[in-house]
Design a protein around this nucleic acid. Sequence first.
DNA 1: CATGAATGAGCTTTCATTCAT
DNA 2: TATGAATGAAAGCTCATTCAT
Lengths: 215, 215, 215, 215
Amino acid sequence: MTITARKEREKEMRKKDILGAAEKLFFKKGYENVSMADIAKETELARSTLYLYFKNKEEIYLAIAIRGSKILQKMVTKKYPKAKNGLEKIRVLILAFYQFYKEYPGYYLSRFYYNIPFDEDFPEMEELNKIRVESFKTVTNAFNEGIKDGTIRPDIDPVKTSLYITSSMQNMINLTPTIEMHMKDNDLTHEELIDYTVEMMIHSIQNNNNSSTLK
Amino acid sequence: MTITARKEREKEMRKKDILGAAEKLFFKKGYENVSMADIAKETELARSTLYLYFKNKEEIYLAIAIRGSKILQKMVTKKYPKAKNGLEKIRVLILAFYQFYKEYPGYYLSRFYYNIPFDEDFPEMEELNKIRVESFKTVTNAFNEGIKDGTIRPDIDPVKTSLYITSSMQNMINLTPTIEMHMKDNDLTHEELIDYTVEMMIHSIQNNNNSSTLK
Amino acid sequence: MTITARKEREKEMRKKDILGAAEKLFFKKGYENVSMADIAKETELARSTLYLYFKNKEEIYLAIAIRGSKILQKMVTKKYPKAKNGLEKIRVLILAFYQFYKEYPGYYLSRFYYNIPFDEDFPEMEELNKIRVESFKTVTNAFNEGIKDGTIRPDIDPVKTSLYITSSMQNMINLTPTIEMHMKDNDLTHEELIDYTVEMMIHSIQNNNNSSTLK
Amino acid sequence: MTITARKEREKEMRKKDILGAAEKLFFKKGYENVSMADIAKETELARSTLYLYFKNKEEIYLAIAIRGSKILQKMVTKKYPKAKNGLEKIRVLILAFYQFYKEYPGYYLSRFYYNIPFDEDFPEMEELNKIRVESFKTVTNAFNEGIKDGTIRPDIDPVKTSLYITSSMQNMINLTPTIEMHMKDNDLTHEELIDYTVEMMIHSIQNNNNSSTLK
DNA sequence: CATGAATGAGCTTTCATTCAT
DNA sequence: TATGAATGAAAGCTCATTCAT
């Protein structure tokens, strides 16, 4: 029984190793530019061994995507209860995003979330989408709450703003080469830029005519 | 001399044809999922003929990127003179971006600007970068002007905000699949979302305590 | 000693299980389209366990071939004593073939006897051949007997006819796709066809001028 | 125009070369035991070059099967007119088969016609089947004619006998390893065996009570 | 100028077999 | 005895690129 458990754990470890290696490579070079051979070399396994743990390349990709989504979700739900009002919640959400990026930079330092053309619909795809939909609802709910409690500008559209915030965060983290170039040209660190973006975003949504704030 | 000139022009035409075809395909399917055979079929040329006009696939990619940057630059400089103050200029810039996207959607509706793993440093790369640097300076200058003339919040950082605005626009246009999914789930069109983003961005930079505006 | 014996028996049982599973699969899909993994799954053993009982895939194949030959041989020798003359014996042989096919259809409904590219000469191959040579002698002997006792046409060549009969039976049972197609096109069952073939074969060898028959 | 024609011919030649090589290998080792690399080596072309001439391995297989069927058909129709009655026609058909085997032994010296598991239905498959159906009709027609003109036993079934004859011929030519072994053990050549089979087959179908024959 | 033909390097995936436990 | 883990070799196929004509 214990032996089985240990083996199970070891197997899970190997899976994680492979995902870690694949992640690193996908993030650096993009899905189609990473071969199974590359992943094998990175993990110091044989090409064929990878197939003991994952059915194929797509499954590896999806496992990574799911892993990322789950980690992010966990980070959010952990900090969330401490937020007392809508704006606070949004701030927590943004910071969770930010923290996620800092602890698992790969998920955002790549164009990982882009367009992988999958022929078949994988069952994993559904799971992934469920997680994402749920995460998104959390954001919209926070906006609605903020409007009600007066901490967020009442003239914003919760859904659109959620999209705007989410997209901006994702992309402020996941820079295009062009933006990266400008950043370097102007001696800015990525962190400075992100901090600034968070400020700008908060500024654009908070309610300045809020009587409770003024008082 | 005239003959040479004509030939030159014809050659230039062919190059444009090829770039047009490649552009269309790259935008639709992504760089690595487009083969030279695909481009050849689209142009109705032989695969090998493409190599008379471009050294290799990467060169085609770079030519397209340069072309896009030039078009965008032209659009900006055309509308720019009409803007009377800093904020106006920023608005013009944002709208130029937007118009560019609408007229040449491919440049943004694809992961075009991302992650092409080029081994060697291409000479074209430099040209491309020059154009981009110049474009970026235009934006920062507009911010500086806006701060001086009081149309833009004085507490913003021109460089950082330029990056924020540029990046946000780029990415609001070039959505990740996740964002796209949420958009569909909430019955929003891409255009609605972009319009909203533009509004939000303007709102976050304009100077509300501006006496000239108040009058 | 008893323990060893039991173990031996158990080992023999396992071998049979494996052969049974392999047989079923080989017959259904053909030797090269069956993987060791398939056999393992069918037997509910681990892939590697198969190698405890058989040196490799080829050995499994040969064991099955030998088993089949032995079964056929047993069937023949069982019915054989009842036949009173040469023609009767041939009829018994043909029917034994037929019965074998019906009870162990796989041995013939597959391309089992064909084209396995074995590099090395296996010791099992010899055993297999011995059995087959012996079986064949039985057939030739029956023909010789039939010629002597006047039940079979005296102008036939016993060896050649043995080959003709054996080959025809084998192949009438193991149809080519083409023949199968024609069969379906003409609404014939496989059984009807075999019955007819048996008749035709008997007709082509029996002695019609046989005085003993006439009387 | 002439140049195009020559190129066309050369291309056709190459195709034939490839088919020839593939044929030889398929016949010797069986479809699944021949790799594209094998064919490439045989033709002294690069592996990838094969794909310029055939879409994939299956297409090569089908091309060979069609080629064989067409050659056989041509052989039959060439000799056919000379046959004056039904039995003669059958004899011509059998001999055409025989000649085909001698001139293009590969088509029969292998289990070429057996079970290749194709996933998709190839358009070529239809063509192949049409040819085969037509060929088969020729045989049945000859039997019907023979029954009418009294040269063939009236108590035979034309369709079943056609199948019996066709199958026997195919298989007498395309021996199983077992039969081949017996042949060698008894110092018989393949040709002797075939000759004998033809005789036996003719004997089993001809009408011995035929008055026209008796006269 | 244009092209058809050819190719080498690379891809994902399968599978018989070995080995430490 | 039994097995899970691992792997090397090979398979079918794609594709950017070169070259003779």
